Simulated scan of single mutants.
Amino acid sequence: VSETRVSLSNGQIKGFTLMWPAGDEERRRRLIGEMDKSLVRLDTVLDPAAGSDEDQAIDLVSGLEVRKPAISRSGFYTDNRGTVVTTAEAVENCARITIDELYEAKLVATSDTGIAVLTPNDALAPLNVAAFSAQTPRLNTEIAIAGYSYEGVLDSPSVTYGTLSDLRGLRGEENLNRFALTALAGDAGGPVLDATGGVLGMLLPAPSAGPQLPDDVAFSLDRETIQAALRDAGKSGQTARSSEQMAAEDISAAARSMTVLVSCWK
């Protein structure tokens, strides 16, 4: 328990703070009285710059380092109950998993294709959920990905535009789509949207082994693979009903509102 007493005189604030164990009122009254009587106001005041730290950082609070997750990646809502799909690398060997660093989540299932399915511990009401595209995209059409590119440094997801290069992987993998776009590590697990706002797939992490690919080559697991992973986990996804193209700003808004930050805490 603490008590602070201050007074203003000649433009200067002076005083003291006393802290004591709860329940020790007798000693508190005695000490407060003695401190009131013995307080002497000096002419000097604290330098206004005292206590400032030129080496400022957003991950410091009152000079103390803020605890950070071991890894953060992107994910997206797939139903109105808050089920999230993300990349399996985001949730490996975690003591805790959070959505947007606010909501505790549990790992429901992972697939051998690299998909992880999460559910929040408490019910959530997402602003928007993924609706999987019902049409086959055409090559060289524009797509958008949403993700926490900088792994949570920014409060909101970023949207990056690119083009669909192929409906297969470089080795002919039928469950992959290849894109011409530049993505960052934090974007992995985020949704890939077509021109109608339908979700085509989930962005994969950059390959960690094999040939070094150009920076503007990215891959996603296709929508059929994601829907299969959801079914295996006892979940389901929605199918997009509209085939009309959306304005770029509407696609960005839709992508951001379904995208979440998935964090793994050790």
Results as ranks from 00 to 15, higher is better:
69 P>R: 00
74 S>R: 04
42 L>F: 13
25 E>P: 00
57 A>P: 05
102 L>M: 14
78 T>F: 07
35 M>E: 07
96 R>P: 06
106 K>W: 10
101 E>Y: 06
106 K>N: 13
101 E>R: 09
84 V>K: 00
32 I>F: 11
98 T>W: 00
65 E>F: 08
112 D>V: 12
52 S>F: 13
103 Y>W: 14
34 E>W: 10
33 G>T: 10
46 L>H: 04
64 L>A: 15
89 E>G: 04
34 E>L: 09
94 C>F: 02
50 A>F: 06
66 V>C: 12
50 A>K: 10
70 A>S: 14
83 T>V: 09
52 S>V: 10
39 L>C: 02
49 A>C: 04
64 L>V: 09
114 G>C: 03
81 R>S: 14
39 L>V: 05
56 Q>K: 13
107 L>V: 03
110 T>M: 08
22 A>Q: 15
62 S>M: 14
111 S>Y: 03
54 E>T: 08
89 E>V: 15
23 G>S: 04
20 W>D: 06
105 A>K: 01
77 Y>I: 08
36 D>A: 09
36 D>F: 12
108 V>K: 08
114 G>E: 03
82 G>Q: 01
42 L>Q: 11
108 V>E: 08
61 V>W: 08
58 I>T: 12
50 A>T: 11
60 L>P: 02
104 E>A: 15
114 G>H: 00
97 I>C: 01
21 P>H: 03
74 S>Q: 05
70 A>P: 01
62 S>L: 15
109 A>K: 12
81 R>F: 09
105 A>I: 02
41 R>Q: 12
75 G>T: 04
47 D>H: 05
114 G>R: 01
54 E>S: 09
20 W>R: 05
70 A>F: 08
48 P>V: 07
105 A>M: 07
89 E>H: 13
55 D>F: 14
54 E>Y: 10
17 T>V: 07
107 L>K: 05
63 G>P: 00
39 L>E: 06
103 Y>I: 11
76 F>I: 02
53 D>W: 07
100 D>P: 04
80 N>V: 04
58 I>L: 13
57 A>H: 15
82 G>P: 02
23 G>E: 04
114 G>L: 02
74 S>I: 02
74 S>C: 04
79 D>M: 05
103 Y>H: 15
104 E>L: 15
94 C>D: 03
58 I>Y: 13
97 I>H: 00
112 D>Q: 12
72 S>R: 04
70 A>C: 06
73 R>F: 11
33 G>V: 07
87 T>Q: 01
110 T>H: 04
85 V>K: 01
88 A>G: 03
82 G>I: 08
93 N>K: 14
55 D>I: 10
58 I>C: 07
34 E>I: 06
60 L>I: 06
102 L>V: 12
90 A>S: 06
38 S>C: 07
100 D>F: 03
53 D>K: 09
61 V>I: 13
103 Y>M: 06
105 A>F: 09
101 E>N: 15
108 V>T: 12
49 A>S: 13
44 T>I: 10
95 A>C: 05
95 A>R: 15
44 T>L: 13
